[in-house]
Amino acid sequence: MYLNEMLLLGAVLFCIGVYGVLARRNGVLVLMSIELILNAVNINLVAFGAFHGTVTGQIFALFVITVAAAEVGVGLAIVLLLYRNRRSIDLDQVDLMKG
């Protein structure tokens, strides 16, 4: 595969993820969209690493996967607390929890 094809795939995934973050109001779907964005970054890192013939892109991708796992854990905890308090995971109701 060529570098252009991998970068195009990463760009498409990134755009789908950004659309999901901006358009969705469901907390779980927003977390899934953030994961799509991070996976697009991983594809680009691995593609550039393979293009240059080094494993540096794969190493950075492993760090991104580690951060994404921690982000999912914290994000799901916040969504569960939101559901417990409001009986909905609609992100429009987050501002009601001030105070």
Results as ranks from 00 to 15, higher is better:
residue 53 G to K: 05
residue 61 A to M: 02
residue 59 I to C: 10
residue 68 A to S: 13
residue 52 H to C: 04
residue 71 E to L: 12
residue 67 V to C: 13
residue 74 V to Q: 04
residue 56 T to R: 13
residue 57 G to D: 05
residue 74 V to G: 10
residue 70 A to C: 11
residue 67 V to S: 15
residue 68 A to H: 05
residue 78 I to S: 11
residue 82 L to Q: 14
residue 73 G to S: 14
residue 74 V to Y: 04
residue 54 T to W: 00
residue 52 H to Q: 08
residue 58 Q to A: 10
residue 70 A to I: 10
residue 76 L to N: 10
residue 65 I to K: 06
residue 58 Q to N: 13
residue 55 V to E: 15
residue 54 T to Y: 02
residue 57 G to C: 07
residue 53 G to A: 09
residue 58 Q to V: 07
residue 52 H to V: 05
residue 55 V to M: 10
residue 61 A to F: 01
residue 58 Q to H: 08
residue 69 A to D: 09
residue 79 V to R: 03
residue 63 F to V: 14
residue 60 F to W: 07
residue 66 T to H: 00
residue 78 I to Q: 08
residue 54 T to P: 00
residue 74 V to R: 03
residue 52 H to R: 06
residue 59 I to M: 14
residue 65 I to C: 02
residue 76 L to G: 04
residue 76 L to C: 10
residue 71 E to P: 00
residue 63 F to C: 15
residue 81 L to E: 03
residue 67 V to K: 00
residue 66 T to G: 02
residue 67 V to A: 15
residue 65 I to T: 07
residue 66 T to K: 00
residue 73 G to E: 12
residue 70 A to M: 14
residue 63 F to E: 15
residue 72 V to M: 15
residue 78 I to M: 07
residue 62 L to A: 02
residue 77 A to M: 05
residue 71 E to W: 03
residue 57 G to V: 03
residue 77 A to E: 06
residue 79 V to I: 13
residue 66 T to N: 03
residue 52 H to P: 01
residue 71 E to R: 04
residue 53 G to C: 10
residue 55 V to W: 11
residue 70 A to K: 07
residue 60 F to N: 05
residue 79 V to W: 02
residue 78 I to T: 15
residue 72 V to H: 06
residue 70 A to R: 04
residue 53 G to Y: 04
residue 74 V to E: 05
residue 76 L to Y: 06
residue 78 I to K: 00
residue 64 V to D: 01
residue 80 L to F: 06
residue 64 V to Y: 01
residue 70 A to Y: 08
residue 73 G to N: 12
residue 52 H to E: 11
residue 66 T to F: 01
residue 59 I to V: 12
residue 71 E to Y: 09
residue 76 L to W: 06
residue 58 Q to L: 11
residue 69 A to S: 15
residue 71 E to N: 12
residue 53 G to H: 07
residue 81 L to D: 04
residue 55 V to D: 15
residue 69 A to M: 09
residue 82 L to S: 10
residue 74 V to W: 01
residue 71 E to Q: 13
residue 58 Q to D: 11
residue 58 Q to Y: 09
residue 71 E to D: 08
residue 60 F to K: 03
residue 62 L to N: 00
residue 61 A to Q: 05
residue 70 A to T: 08
residue 63 F to D: 13
residue 61 A to D: 01
residue 82 L to G: 12
residue 55 V to G: 14
residue 60 F to S: 05
residue 82 L to C: 12
